[in-house]
Design a protein around this nucleic acid. Structure first.
Lengths: 240, 240
DNA sequence: ACCTGAACACCGTTCAAGT
DNA sequence: ACCTGAACACCGTTCAAGT
């Protein structure tokens, strides 16, 4: 605000005398998310972040207590975007709503592989994580279960989402991320290794290798989620 | 083997002239697991491992390509212990067998918080992870489903297990691990924070805070697993 | 074939000093 | 109140040299 000043006419819009950098928690987290998206959790160093913000390393510590808290807060800030996606969710079927919320979470996490590991870790720190847990729980509360069942079912849905999403998210091992190898080539290579196994010793692997080779992460997630939700619906029906 | 020599009588059994350290992949992984159990993934540095093995840092690199592979292989070596626990599993109900296998996995992972993040990451490297995936898949194959359903259901079970186990495993935040704070105190503190929330804005949190405060990780896991397995049983029945 | 210490190129975090 | 550069105490990994 002290910077505000009317531009004098004709002067090119160059930054004038180099002032010292000024941040905010928002800009720090935004910078962190940019780096995370570009190069993953490994790439987010305090030095890299300070460089991007155009300041010194120590200034980051004014806003966060350390790297771990930075990761937690950066992840939580991204999670806030989910609420826009699920603003319209609210049908007369709680199970349908749960599916919609879970799929939105999956979509958000899956193309941010770094996100899965840092979401829903510290609800005291992570406001959006807490609100999402609350949102899911409110749908489960509509199913007519006991408090204990509500608690367990909500935790199961959340656990399944972040568990499998984190798992799928970390799948590509560096070479895929960097673009040296396509996802198809990567899957084909593993499928090849699996086909080389003894089919007598590995009947299941042999049985599903074709499915694995052409599988789609989103469909796989949706199928597993539907199994869980089917079990939940059953519990709900027998409770009435 | 060149070391072998008959002890001359009366001489104390001290190590004689200091010979240079000699390792094996097994001893390297065993040392790594010891450190991981004592101080978690963060505590496993190459230097700490080398010191425990009584050798130099660089010798570790003869057996593993780097720290990541060390973690992967250490995790997989622990996973091998599960097969003893599930040796007797094999009833006429595949769902019961799946529950037994999943619970064994949970029990193994839950008191080794570091394990969850490194299990089932690279089946080309991790033999036991592959065999466990196979073992679970073989049970699912008995349910009369299509290959696609078998693939999806097996992945869902595995995803749920490692997802929630990893989640529960990482729950205690340093202070609990070090023994400064008991689990009860930790849960009570969070419960206190939750009770301080506005009950109108957080009806679900308010509804389950009592359950959360006295919850048991194993029961919570079992309850979620049962929902998933109930959905799977339903799918199996409608397939026949 | 396997082990070694030293060196390299990084890290996260702290601190005394600035504005 | 917020930012800075330099310093500290670590890291993982490599390498030339040993046995």
């Amino acid at each position: 605000m002290a910077e505000q000043r009317t531009e004098s006419a004709g002067r090119p819009r160059q930054p004038r005398t180099r002032t010292r950098a000024s941040h905010s928690l928002e800009s720090v987290l935004a910078g962190a998310v940019e780096i995370l998206d570009e190069s993953g959790a490994q790439g987010l160093t305090i030095r890299a972040l300070a460089a991007r913000l155009g300041g010194g390393v120590a200034s980051v510590y004014w806003y966060v207590s350390g790297r771990e808290e930075l990761l937690d807060l950066a992840a939580d800030s991204v999670l806030g975007g989910i609420f826009d996606q699920i603003a319209d969710v609210g049908s007369d079927d709680p199970i349908d709503d749960l599916r919609a919320i879970a799929m939105a979470m999956f979509d958000t996490i899956v193309d941010r592989p770094w996100l899965g590991a840092y979401v829903l870790r510290d609800t005291g720190l992570q406001v959006h994580s807490l609100q999402l847990y609350e949102r899911i729980g409110e749908e489960v509360m509509r199913l007519g279960l006991t408090p204990r069942q509500v608690f367990h079912a909500t935790s199961a849905v959340v656990g399944f989402v972040i568990g499998t999403a984190a798992d799928l998210g970390q799948e590509p091992p560096a070479a895929v991320v960097s673009g040296e190898v396509t996802r198809e080539e990567y899957l084909a290579r593993i499928a090849g290794e699996w086909r080389a196994l003894d089919a007598t010793a590995y009947p299941f692997i042999n049985h599903i290798v074709g499915e694995f080779e052409r599988h789609n992460d989103r469909d796989q997630f949706a199928a597993g989620l539907d199994l869980l939700l089917a079990g939940l619906r059953l519990q709900s029906e027998s409770a009435r």
